[in-house]
Design a protein around this nucleic acid. Structure first.
Lengths: 215, 215
DNA sequence: TAGATTGTTAATCGATTAACAATC
DNA sequence: TAGATTGTTAATCGATTAACAATC
């Protein structure tokens, strides 16, 4: 049941297309050519056409792309056409920040649970969800359909927690801990690692490099 | 004063090497071959050697790499051998989460200011730093050397703020707003965009795709 | 010295860009 | 129909991997 296997580079760009199309939609733009879009996004028109054609012929010769149509199509490709139930494990600053982020819910990512080990946090409510203790997790996972587990906990606790979650049937993990969970979990578990400190180090590299090059 | 221009792909991998070397160091490992490291990190040994050789010959034939030495060298390359003064603009959940993140300070990223427009937050203290109002920014930037400005504010306010910061001499921006600031700013301003929602969408894509392939 | 492993060159692979025929 | 712009094939470019001589 395999498709042609879309390259990672293409998938990485998809959400960006989606964002720009959303903005165009807000601005009431009805259609756009790969050329116009390429100027806005600072990528080549060729790349846009190639990327989109991995998924189908969404455009029309002599016309371009219908913004609304393309927007909806990409949403479907990205799986944004349905609700993803999400839990967050680690209700510290970052966990709460993510739980509070309204925009996610607009895209179909619905936070249905918040967990921590710190008893002080027990029962504390964030956006109407009261923080539960981690030992309630197995029961919770049995009673609720959870599509995505977000890990915002210390690096040393993340691998063990991830394993536990996978044992309870969780199939996708959004990982903010500074460790590569994908290497320790079964291959069929989807892991998206967000390593903020690595992002900051890249910034630091570019900054140092810039300064070096300018005496 | 240009070097050979290191490719973006290499720079992207550098912080990950750094992280693994740090772990090896903690485990008391003294030396490692590209082959051993490649197994740990799940990349090819060839790539490791190629990557490192962009910056110099850090290894020794017949021996491998000295972990401590390589760790320190990469730190220098990444610019982690000095202190970066950082301010955070937008003291909401995410801004506070970043301000509270101790690990950053260990790597030399020192939060020296926290700003917001919301008067309710004025004077509230986060890790010993009291939140200031955004209109105090110009003065603050005159009185303090700020290397990095972190933007954790709504997308619609980010471009204007970024421009203002650049006018006040800020050279590097760590941007969490859902917009590509690099496209609207002078080329020599360093921008590192962190688009969390795009990361989540990639996860969603992989999840949907996985489910599709398994009937 | 023999063995191990790097640094580096050459070969391969994949991704991006260019070009253009197809077609709205 | 003529003009515009896609979809797609072919050419180019860059990044990854393989191979091996240099050397510790």
């Amino acid at each position: 049941m395999e498709g042609k296997e879309i390259s990672r580079a293409v998938i990485k760009r998809l959400p960006r297309y989606y964002r720009y199309l959303g903005e165009l939609l807000e601005d009431g733009v009805e259609r756009i050519s790969s050329n116009e879009l390429s100027e806005k996004m600072q990528v080549t028109a060729s790349q846009i056409r190639q990327d989109l054609n991995n998924f189908g012929g969404f455009g029309q010769q002599g016309y371009g792309y219908n913004v609304q149509f393309l927007y909806t199509e990409i949403a479907t490709i990205l799986g944004l056409d349905r609700v993803h139930n999400m839990i967050i494990i680690g209700a510290g600053n970052l966990g709460q920040a993510l739980a509070n982020y309204v925009q996610f819910e607009k895209r179909g990512f619905k936070v249905i649970g918040l967990f921590d080990v710190n008893p002080v946090l027990q029962g504390v409510s964030v956006r109407g969800i009261s923080i539960k203790m981690v030992d309630e997790l197995p029961t919770f996972l049995k009673d609720n359909e959870v599509h995505i587990a977000t890990l915002t906990l210390p690096k040393n606790k993340a691998p063990e927690m991830a394993e536990k979650l996978v044992q309870c049937g969780v199939k996708a993990i959004w990982n903010f801990a500074h460790t590569d969970l994908n290497l320790s979990l079964p291959e069929d578990v989807i892991v998206e690692n967000v390593h903020l400190s690595e992002s900051l180090m890249r910034l630091s590299y570019n900054l140092s490099n810039y300064e070096k090059e300018h005496k």
